[in-house]
Amino acid sequence: MEYFFEILLGGLTRGSIYALIALGYTMVYGIIGLINFAHGEVYMIGAFTALIAASVLTLMGWNQVAIIVIASVVAVIYSSCYGFTIEKLAYKPLRRAPRLSALISAIGMSLFLQNYVLLAQTSNFLPFPNLIPEFEFLKPYQHMISSSEIVIIGTTAVVMVLLGIMIKCTKIGKAMRATAQDRDMAMLVGIDVNRVISVTFVVGSATAALGGVLVASHVGQINFYMGFIVGIKAFVAAVLGGIGSIPGAVLGGLVLGWTESFFTGYVSSDYEDVFAFLFLVFILIFRPAGILGRSETEKV
């Protein structure tokens, strides 16, 4: 039974990360109908930024709590700037171009960022300090869950709730939904659609960067390639839950996380990715729009 809970919590941690990154994919897709393949790279850049910030602060002798907070904030802000710039450089000029062009541009941006970090930081795995202290109260359960896992799950939950409130209640959130549903009409009521798109990229990048910092601290090492496979998995999670849907991204992330964990825990760890993608194919056969996705209907 303990083994079961261990796997359950491991899957929850993994799923939280997927969900956190899937949010960025799904929000961007919802608004401009584009798969932002450079999203995984923003996550990677978030981790590198946090590493640099944490190293500098450690040398300066700051205390641990300050280091975690400042490193995360710096990573989030810096990556958001990347997200903003990526959209302006790689996608905005192609707004009225065929979708395929923007997709190719996204893949190009992803490769560019990977190689740029490769040149700057080499291909070596760099050790990442464990920023999250061991919690006293977790001592008796530490074989089941570590404090960094608790922080990952907790942070994800908080981010989800905040994001939910933002989308549901704030003016910019409503404008985001309106733009996702009918962009031309959004312009006709006076919404500055370019601004809405920028905000979407910034918010998506911020959550990805947060995910990058948390994972790097949990795993203990980073390199330029870390965003690729996680990015693909998060994309799978977004599609699984129904791309364009925010609750779908969360659900898809969790479902994918648990699927992988249980398969790894009870069957074999060698075919983890195979099983993840097999599961995607299986779901899409029965629900082509994803678990919570809605198929388009139009009233004439």
Binding site: K174, R177, Q181, D182, D184, M185, L188, K299
Partner: peptide, 10 residues
């Protein structure tokens, strides 16, 4: 606009 263009999910 033509066709009303109501935001369907708002």
């Amino acid at each position: 606009p033509e066709g009303r263009r109501i935001f369907p999910y708002l």
